[in-house]
Write a protein that binds this DNA or RNA. Sequence first.
DNA 1: AACTTTTACAACCGCATCATT
DNA 2: AAATGATGCGGTTGTAAAAGT
Length: 319
Amino acid sequence: MGRTPCCDKIGLKKGPWTPEEDLKLTNYIQIHGPGNWRTLPKKAGLERCGKSCRLRWTNYLRPDIKRGRFSFEEEETIIQLHSILGNKWSDIAARLPGRTDNEIKNYWNTHIRKRLLRNGIDPVTHAPRLDFLDLSSILSSTLCNQSLVNVSSLLGAQALLNPQLLLLANTLLSLKEENPEIILQHLQQNQQICNNSQENLAPPPTLQSNHFQVQPMQTTGEGFFCCPNSQETLGSQPNYIQCSSDSEVPLVSENSNTRSVNGCSQNFTLDSLRSTPISSPTPLNSSSTCSSSVDDERESFSSLLKFEIPDGFDFSEFM
DNA sequence: AACTTTTACAACCGCATCATT
DNA sequence: AAATGATGCGGTTGTAAAAGT
């Protein structure tokens, strides 16, 4: 209903904004505020439609916009929020002060999405992809030609149905490139996962808790990756995949609603995930003091996310 | 150096929803 | 309640810059 032609009107300019136009728009809004976007262009002396002005302001000219590369924490937060909220970019942007929905959406499509796909993780469901086929044979042939270990026997046929093992395999493939020496160690340390998978096939990754915690882990020389559903499969022992890293690896764990990154403890409940105005940002992301933003390093971390939503949790709240 | 391909991101489009009359 | 107008949102496109050949 009620839609009216906008930029298609003859005489209204489209395409990239010039510095002069930016200046006009900025000056006008700083003095008068945006007010009515439809009438703004005329008042500001711009030959643009209101929609174009609004977009230019909210996505680019607004003074509180943070520009530049996304920090590691920001990227991690985006992945976490996306796994819960889906493509609700504006909701995600509300948790990342200074970032716009458009910027996050672009960053997701050009960086994060591709990286998840490369790591065998479905960027829509955030679950390991089942077309990551025949991992045991792939691993055996690519990782263990030197007869370090028979991965097939470690994993077993059912491994292909176990998301934990898919993640483990994925991580091992990454490790192969970074530090092949510790692969055997990882496999042995995670043999319990493999054994358990033979007896008790883990269900697909599901959301089981409405509160979770991201804790920093000191990983001087070795880090831990966390696989989904660790508690069910391994009892009280979290299901970690050890790996080499000098960075602090944020880790999601249960039974707390506190999130801390680099020592900064922050509330992080699903309540806080509900839509919040940009003017009152939740302190989800810390100040960008974490400088480990090397792509390869980030790539290694992309499989560590774990979300648990309790039974009976009402997802409609987020729809 | 010239051309092609890829990447990154600003901007646009159209639909949905909210607000007002 | 219905009609209309305004705004917000997510998907998509266009294009400049970078990378590759």
